[in-house]
């Protein structure tokens, strides 16, 4: 593992008006780390991910990407986002473009690849993730699971340094969750650096190198999955797990 972490967050604070959404959050993500953020709705998981992608202006603290502060107002956010991939809960595919065009838009327009090169990469990934026959279809023709896989491929097509996944299975039927998680698992074992907000505790336990429990905008507890999920130190964590884990 390299000495400089991919993402280093220190004392991050984010408010919407009077409401404090993230309060003194610190997080380090090393190369190849898979960090799972857990916690109830409104605990700040999604906001934290959006802050990392500079989609939200933060109110205090520092975010570093590969040792360079990206929370500096002088940093061009688009340049940062070039090396970060993000997948949303509601897929957010562009409905007017085919699956292939969704996947080649950024590589062609932002990363300057040629059409043939971008399409070859996208096709390879789409075939690898079982979407080979849907390449030329429009997203609305696909099932939720297929759409979310396409969204993952879209994020991967630019070979991002870091992948942010925001509850990507929360909108899916239970039987479709597996096909999406299979991909994430494959990526995790392949060494992709990821931060994911998730409600899938079993999955978090399986793939995470670290689990962070957020409550009221703070990281209450953080550690290896077996410790946080099965032997939590904090009362709040225990209460949360009792509610979400079937036992």
């Amino acid at each position: 593992m390299s000495a400089v972490p991919v993402i280093e967050v220190r004392g991050l604070r984010k408010t919407y008006g009077e409401r404090v959404v993230l309060d003194d959050v610190s997080l380090t993500v090393g190369v190849g780390d898979v960090v799972c953020l857990i916690g109830s709705s409104g605990s700040g998981k999604s906001t934290l991910l959006r802050c990392l992608d500079l989609l939200e202006q933060i109110d205090d603290g520092v975010i570093e990407l590969d040792g360079r502060e990206i929370s500096d107002p002088l940093v061009d956010p688009r340049e940062v986002r070039r090396s970060i991939g993000m997948v949303f809960q509601a897929y957010n595919l562009f409905p007017h473009l085919s699956v292939l065009d969704n996947c080649t838009l950024a590589p062609r327009k932002v990363h300057g690849r040629s059409r043939s090169e971008a399409e070859a990469t996208a096709r390879d990934l789409l075939v690898r993730f079982g979407l080979g026959e849907h390449v030329d279809q429009h997203p609305d023709r696909l099932s939720g699971g297929q759409q979310q896989r396409a969204a993952l491929v879209r994020a991967l097509c630019t070979s991002p340094r870091l992948l942010l996944l925001d509850e990507i299975t929360a909108a899916l039927d239970p039987e479709l969750v597996g096909e999406v998680l299979d991909i994430v698992r494959e990526l995790a074992y392949g060494g992709t650096t990821m931060v994911l907000a998730t409600h899938e505790m079993a999955f978090a336990r399986e793939v995470a190198t670290r689990v962070c429990f957020l409550d009221g905008g703070r990281i209450v507890e953080s550690g290896p999955p077996d410790q946080v999920l099965f032997d939590p130190e904090h009362q709040r964590t225990r209460e949360f797990l009792r509610r979400v884990l079937p036992q």
Partner: peptide, 15 residues
């Protein structure tokens, strides 16, 4: 808790 919060020097600089 938020009443106690003061912007850090870095944040002031950023503003």
């Amino acid at each position: 808790m938020s009443a106690l919060w003061e912007p850090s020097p870095r944040e002031r600089e950023r503003r």
